[in-house]
């Protein structure tokens, strides 16, 4: 009997879904000009930040709100590397709920032996690792060019790594929640735009949060957006000392848990919303 004729026995091994982490890097590789574009955007943005900070510090003296020029430039380079890579990546693989809902192929997320929630989580992990490659590459070049200062201590570096990992989880969860709104709104362009604006402004990715008024800084500092860039970069630059890092890390972890719970709830509801999509 030919193999086609014989229905398979139930698989005796778990899905090897971890291989899905290569999905985003492979999709990016398929559009190599996009990789070059990402590099160009990062280099240009860093160059402009360096010009801006140098001009500002020439006028303002050695420190601005307690930060010297080297710290400011280090902050901006790292924030750019953390933010731009991710923003450019969003939706790059076309594996978002929004794009899948628009072409109706989202149904395939729900007829496979891997829950859609897990599928997206593995893909998101790949996205994070890919973005981290950009960060590490940029950081190396930045240090070699003396644009980026090293962290004040090994312990600061270690805490930064933990904070960055938590920040990536928060980053993924925010993107996911925004994407999942497509199940209700069909298109999440509007929500995406609002979220991108909030992310840029409130994460400290565009301008360090400590340059804002106290009321704004204290509010934004407790929102999940700050957990993605402001906290890890502040730890790296020494703006948040290692000894004071625990509450920040705890807050990041809390956002991870809260957003994950909200995400789980939305996934459950989204699976029910599937009924109205497509004939």
């Amino acid at each position: 009997m030919s193999p086609l004729a014989r229905p398979a026995a139930p698989p005796d091994r778990a899905p090897r879904a971890h291989r899905l982490i290569t999905l985003v890097p492979r999709s990016e590789w398929a559009y190599r000009p996009r990789i070059a574009a990402t590099g160009f955007v990062i280099v240009t943005q860093v160059f402009l930040y360096v010009l801006l900070w140098r001009a500002l510090y020439r006028e303002s003296g050695d420190t601005v709100v307690g930060l010297d020029m080297s710290q400011a430039i280090t902050y901006s380079v790292l924030a750019t590397l953390m933010g731009t890579g991710r923003v450019i990546l969003e939706g790059a693989s076309q594996e978002t709920a929004q794009s899948k809902i628009r072409d109706g192929s989202v149904v395939f997320w729900f007829v496979r032996p891997l829950a859609a929630r897990r599928y997206c989580a593995w893909r998101g992990l790949g996205e994070s690792l890919y973005a981290t490659l950009w960060l590490l590459g940029g950081l190396t070049v930045g240090v070699l060019c003396s644009l980026v200062a090293l962290p004040p201590s090994w312990s600061a570096a270690a805490v930064t790594v933990v904070s960055y990992a938590l920040g990536q989880v928060v980053f993924y969860q925010i993107s996911l929640l925004v994407d999942l709104t497509s199940f209700w709104t069909i298109t999440s362009f509007g929500v995406n735009r609002l979220a991108a604006f909030a992310q840029l402004l409130l994460s400290g990715g565009l301008i360090p949060l400590w340059l804002f008024p106290d009321w704004f800084r204290s509010t934004a500092g407790h929102l999940p957006f700050a957990a993605t860039i402001n906290v890890p970069v502040s730890l790296y630059t020494g703006r948040i000392p290692v000894t004071a890092s625990a509450p920040y890390l705890a807050e990041q972890a809390l956002w991870c848990v809260l957003l994950a719970m909200l995400g789980r709830l939305m996934w459950r509801r989204a699976a029910r919303r599937l009924l109205v999509l497509g004939g």
């Binding site: 398979a8 091994r13 090897r16 999905l23 693989s93 072409d103 109706g104 891997l114």
Partner: peptide
């Protein structure tokens, strides 16, 4: 096994054989 008209479950940017490989991993096929 399911097909839904012209809706595709293939990964748009990858070669078709890579999509089959991803499905192998998702289904845990030897």
């Amino acid at each position: 096994g399911v097909t839904f008209g012209q809706r595709t479950q293939m990964w748009w940017d990858l070669p078709a054989r890579d999509s089959f490989g991803i499905l192998r991993d998702i289904y845990g096929l030897p």
